[in-house]
Design a protein around this nucleic acid. Structure first.
Length: 416
DNA sequence: AATCAACGAAATCTGCAATC
DNA sequence: GATTGCAGATTTCGTTGATT
């Protein structure tokens, strides 16, 4: 007797076999479920064994659906291996997008801890070539357990998640809510690609801000969202809904969440393309190419890095000093000091604004060419550049190093 | 407000070469 | 041969920024 009861309770907690079956589907018009309004968006109520049903908004996109200049299903031609130069976590290389879930949560606030919970959990995933977005909605905080168990049926079939800032925000939050309800989060310890970080790596230099909305405009060329809900308003809109029961004002929140998922998938594809083949599918902006070149250089792919930097120079309209400094730094890392010196030399000859080429050439002259007189001249030039401009803390240090360097060089030349 | 990965700067280690 | 000083590599520490 006790055994049966225990089994049932465990099943409800998501540990038993009972929950492996599919949800029963309840039509939206079902009278007992319609008691609390939900936004007028396509969807249905889903319930897991013994739990009250929760509302799941459903959007389906055909194989050829495009969003931000890309066709989402093209992601299936890529794997996580594309992100090798941009993501240090080796598990990401194994990521298979047909088994991944794109996750984004709308929550009752930004603060962590038990006070914050997700009232709308958007999950994007591929079914065949088409892309589905399911949005699990909590009509009442008392419904959370049911929402998490329904979520489990969709998410549990995946072994990877793709998020935006989800390593810091969405995923830990979902973990906390699952622990609170003593439900095992599935997938447990998934492969996690957090697109914030590779995006920063690639686009920060050009765009400055790497908020998802900035990337949407600056990378995917989508128009700025018209009438979109600002994130800070979202918790308030949900609390109003809980008080008044009017679901209308939540419709734009569903829309916001749905678009965030589509943008996340499109951004993932765009970055995957650039990083897979920077020659055939290069970023169109010189600064993005420069960052991509740096990333390849950092993982030791010098040939690809050089090609990125050369192309970046070719399409750069403004002064390209920064890109050339990258090229020189790359040759130095390749231990091709002669070529590096040629590049620094050209920069110095043109009166480079940055001190780096002067300092690097001074090192080169002293330690490789053993031309102390030349090294001293370069160190002096570097000092002059240093003093000719506003001094930051860093400049102060570089200056001190240069004075030290110059003193040593004069000793070596026999000058007191 | 809480969190966390990435990045840059600073600190430390390693190996080489000059000097006495 | 021991000491010194450097550059480059590696490790550690602190800061930044994105999420609702």
């Amino acid at each position: 007797m006790l055994d049966v009861e225990l089994r049932e309770r465990l099943a409800r907690l998501g540990y038993g076999r009972a929950t492996t079956g599919t949800s029963r589907v309840i039509e939206t018009s079902s009278p007992d479920q319609a008691s609390r309004a939900v936004p007028r968006v396509p969807g249905q109520h889903r319930a897991v064994a013994g739990e009250p049903a929760c509302f799941v908004a459903e959007s389906r996109y055909a194989v050829d659906h495009d969003h931000g200049e890309v066709v989402l299903s093209d992601l299936l031609t890529h794997t996580g291996a594309a992100f090798r130069p941009l993501v240090p976590d080796p598990r990401v290389l194994e990521l298979d997008f047909s088994r991944a879930a794109f996750v984004d949560c709308e929550t009752t606030g930004l603060a962590g801890g038990t006070g914050t919970y997700a009232f709308l959990i958007g999950v994007g995933y591929f079914v065949g070539g088409s892309f589905h977005v399911d949005q699990f909605f909590m009509r009442d905080p008392g419904e959370e357990r049911g929402v998490l168990l329904a979520l489990r049926e969709t998410l549990g079939e995946r072994n990877a998640v793709v998020t935006f800032n989800g390593k810091s925000f969405d995923w830990p939050l979902l973990e906390t809510r699952h622990i609170y309800h003593r439900i095992r989060l599935a997938p447990d310890d998934p492969i996690h690609l957090d697109m914030l970080h590779p995006s920063r790596r690639l686009f920060k230099r050009r765009l400055g801000s790497c908020a998802l909305s900035s990337l949407e405009v600056g990378v995917l060329s989508l128009p700025a969202r018209n009438g979109d809900v600002p994130g800070w308003q979202i918790p308030g809109l949900y609390f109003d809904y809980l008080r008044r029961g009017d679901a209308g004002p939540l419709t734009p929140v569903f829309e916001h969440n749905r678009l965030d998922i589509l943008t996340l998938a499109a951004l993932t594809l765009k970055v995957a393309r650039h990083a897979t083949d920077p020659v055939a599918a290069p970023p169109e902006h010189a600064l993005d190419l420069m960052c991509l070149g740096r990333a390849f250089g950092d993982v030791g792919d010098f040939e690809i890095a050089l090609r990125c930097l050369e192309r970046a120079r070719a399409i750069m309209s403004e002064p390209d000093e920064e890109i050339r400094a990258c090229v020189a730094a790359l040759y130095k890392r390749m231990r091709n000091y002669a070529t590096a010196a040629d590049v620094w030399h050209a920069l110095v000859a043109e009166g480079a604004l940055s001190i780096e080429p002067y300092v690097e050439l001074a090192k080169h002259a002293e330690h490789r060419l053993r031309d102390y007189a030349r090294a001293a001249v370069l160190a002096e030039q570097a000092l002059a550049v240093c003093s000719s401009r506003a001094t930051t803390a860093r400049d102060g240090r570089v200056r001190a190093e240069l004075i030290h360097r110059l003193a040593r060089l004069r000793r070596r030349q026999g000058i007191a």
